[in-house]
Design a binder for these strands. Structure first.
Length: 212
DNA sequence: GGCCAGGACACCA
DNA sequence: TGGTGTCATGGC
């Protein structure tokens, strides 16, 4: 239904990264306002963000909330992009996934979900994103799994396919926003049951591989 | 006015 | 290691 393209609306990989930081605990509609203001200020690139004074940046991203924290995080990421990646986000994609992930996690303000969002949607790497929707849904289905276990199980069952990871994550988020109408063969419930089934299979597979 | 939204981090026991 | 407080805005 949702496809793999366009679910994360961004014109450039760097814009994906900016959105990933701005959306931390924030409704996406507020993130869009902040991104539009950055675009209007011609600040949607690493060099502009790195050079901008903190107060100006704070005011530009104010609609997204947590503006002081997020301004600092954006500047840290912009400097990292310039100094470590030479201004080219796609350089992350040329690294092994674990190496790129560790590098991102070393940055202040980049946690596991934000790192995986950048790896998947900005770099096209097969990093399955475990977000609040995913953990809430699985908890309600009685599946008590650590985020790392969920990530590994889904990555395994999706054959480390970035396109599939993007499709499934987008679908989980979009379906989670909808309210189940409790009809027989409800599309939402069928989707969730099916995902849970494959997750269990993926989890079993991961454990077997780990044992080997 | 309260709750929620596509988290992360510092601090403390 | 796990729990808690903090950061802050806008829509409903």
């Amino acid at each position: 239904m949702y496809g793999s393209e366009g679910w994360w609306p961004a014109k450039t990989p760097f814009e994906v990264c900016v959105g990933a930081i701005l959306t931390q605990n924030t409704n996406w509609s507020n993130v869009v306002k902040a991104i539009d203001r950055l675009r209007d200020a011609r600040a949607l690139n690493a060099r502009s963000l790195a050079a901008m004074d903190a107060e100006t940046l704070e005011q530009l991203i104010r609609p997204a909330g947590f503006y002081r924290q997020k301004a600092e995080r954006l500047k840290i990421f912009a400097v990292f992009t310039i100094e470590v990646l030479g201004g080219d986000i796609s350089r992350l994609a040329s690294m092994p996934l674990d190496r790129a992930r560790t590098l991102l996690l070393s940055l202040k303000g980049i946690g596991e979900e934000t790192a995986d969002s950048i790896l998947l949607y900005a770099c096209g790497m097969p990093a399955f994103i475990v977000d609040a929707y995913t953990t809430r849904w699985l908890t309600r289905m009685g599946m008590d799994m650590e985020p790392a276990e969920i990530r590994e199980a889904f990555s395994s069952i999706l054959h480390r396919d970035a396109d599939a990871c993007a499709r499934l994550h987008g679908a989980i988020v979009e379906f989670s926003k909808q309210v189940c109408r409790s009809k027989p063969n409800c599309q939402l419930c069928t989707f969730k049951r099916t995902c849970a089934y494959y997750l269990r299979e993926g989890s079993k597979r991961s454990r077997k591989q780990a044992q080997r």
